[in-house]
Write a protein that binds this DNA or RNA. Structure first.
Lengths: 334, 334
DNA sequence: CTGAAAGCGCTTACAG
DNA sequence: CTGAAAGCGCTTACAG
């Protein structure tokens, strides 16, 4: 790592300026010098320092990403698309797996600021007050993907979670279900927690189906929570005929629990999930799910972030992408 | 982002040197000045530039990670542990999802070098010649986790893949199976491709079971490949009574395929997987698997990398961690 | 087309 | 305990 631009300048018999020029645009350099410089670079195995460059240019080409939990399928999918799109656009990504830890998220945001990252993507929507203040004051471009905390000014790319949940619940009622349980997400999450619940509740209401308190429980989107919540619901004296889970993982947990209790899906209980992750085709029966365009959201998040970095088109504040009911084998008429 | 150390020095009425001191160790500064500086920092909402600091210190506190495919469970688990351990040790991570693309991996390695990352962790073992040369010449500490390419000098943390596969196959023979199919990984992968196959083959040989060519096929560790390969195997005139898949994902794909063809696991065909990822408890029947200590490998990789960065203990060249057969419900006696 | 010099925002001997 | 100055490795007006 010892070789620097000065060394190649010396070796090539030119100035540092000239080396810098061939390293970058290559303009205003004669072919002769260009050759000499290239040869010197080659021989010295020279690799320019990104960080010295960043210091001068005030641009790091770094995008930071905060995900609530990398090991959850929906996050790893969105992350892989973020990385892919960033890479195509010559950006590198730094990852924070906040692991549901709000302090860690706050700490990372401060680090991102110190690192002078060019932009930040957040797929988590749980934020505490100090984080909210921080997000308010920071002047690094930020976009939320598949998340939208309340009271903040940054761009968010989301499905209409209320409507999507409404449509999912309505689908169950259209199959004749009257006893519909709900396995919800984290109530601290505005869109994936609260709005999905509200959609469920209003669909029931508009279909004149009473809300049964025992049928509603909230979890952290994980398979494990889906399982244990389903287990609790199966203890009700009168079993539901359908379950709407606010994530595919929880839906699969519910299915497994139902099976393990000797009941059948969808014969005894229908199950519908939310997200559209890979598990939908993994479980048997295949999971009917209210799907978000996860990959597209990842791609869009990066593209919009880069636009914002480049100061184009800052008018957009929220993008609503389409949700889609994909019917598979886990729901049937009652 | 406009405020810099000079601004807080001016505001506090001290020298830049003093500000730098309170920012770092805080030694050799009177309490009085310390207070003034802290106040100025607070009022200016000053955040020191990591990159200017890195330039001086020749240390970026950045660790780069290359994974073959983030969305594969085994990789997201190891990545989450890498992130967790790095974060605890005050390092940040940059991620490259190589997506099975060797050129992308090479390109990223060059970027990592330009970024002067302090260390690199690679969980992929497919490397081409130019990458091998690059890895040979680079003087950034590198450790391979759950991967070990041939002919390279860097630390690798792996299970004994040969022995683990041998033990898995032997387990099937101990249950009385004579017709054992093998769904292998990528043959370009030394340990997870070739060694697992060799373990399978030799276990059969030592148990006097003939190798049936139709029973052996290789894939990319994904559920989809497991499914399609199993589908091919089910076309054999004489069906196997057991299948050993070189990843849990492929095993689950195989199970689904078997089910979709009207057969039962383990009654008709036993299935054993490899890795020990979350899916083992998700599928029904639960998957018996030859497990690697995935999380521990992620943690160790970071710890050993940091040791190497700090120049301690460079003697270790390879660490073999224990594999473990975890019996669940997907295999039975024949 | 070419290069000397200033500057990016820090840290750290060195001198006091 | 305190600060002036050099230096980290680049880029870019500016002058020629």
């Amino acid at each position: 790592m010892a070789v620097k631009i000065k060394d190649v300048a010396k070796k090539a018999g030119v100035s540092v300026t000239t080396v810098s020029r061939v390293l970058n645009d290559g303009k205003y350099v004669s072919d002769e010098l260009k050759e000499k410089v290239k040869k010197a670079i080659e021989e010295l195995n020279y690799s320019p320092s990104f960080i010295a460059r960043s210091l001068v240019l005030k641009k790091t080409n770094l995008l930071a990403v905060i995900v609530p939990n990398i090991t959850a399928s929906v996050n790893s999918i969105i992350l892989s698309k973020i990385e892919e799109t960033a890479s195509k656009n010559n950006y590198n990504i730094i990852v924070c797996n906040m692991a549901e830890n709000l302090d860690k998220q706050y700490k990372y945001l401060n680090i991102f600021k110190e690192m002078r990252v060019d932009g930040i993507i957040i797929t988590n929507e749980k934020i505490d007050d100090k984080t909210r203040d921080f997000l308010e004051s920071i002047n690094i471009p930020i976009v939320f993907a598949s998340a939208k905390p309340s009271n903040q000014k940054h761009i968010a790319i989301v499905v209409n979670n209320y409507q999507a949940a409404y449509d999912a619940a309505e689908y169950l009622t259209s199959l004749g279900h009257k006893r519909i349980a709900f396995i919800g997400g984290d109530r601290r999450d505005i869109t994936s927690g609260q709005e999905r619940y509200n959609g469920y509740r209003n669909a029931l209401k508009n279909n004149k189906i009473p809300l049964v308190e025992e049928y509603v429980e909230f979890g952290n989107y994980s398979l494990q929570d889906g399982y244990s919540i389903m287990n609790k619901i199966l203890k009700c004296k009168k079993l539901p005929t359908a379950v709407f889970a606010a994530s595919d993982d929880m839906a699969v947990g519910a299915i497994n629990c139902i099976k393990d209790n000797g009941l059948k899906v969808p014969d005894d209980i229908s199950v519908i999930g939310f997200d559209g992750t890979a598990v939908v085709d993994i479980v048997r029966p295949r999971l009917t799910s209210m799907e978000q365009p996860i990959k597209e959201m990842g791609t869009m998040a990066v593209e919009m972030l880069i636009q914002k970095i480049n100061k184009q088109q800052t008018l957009v504040n929220e993008v609503i992408v389409n949700h889609e009911l994909v019917v598979r084998d886990s729901c049937k008429k009652v």
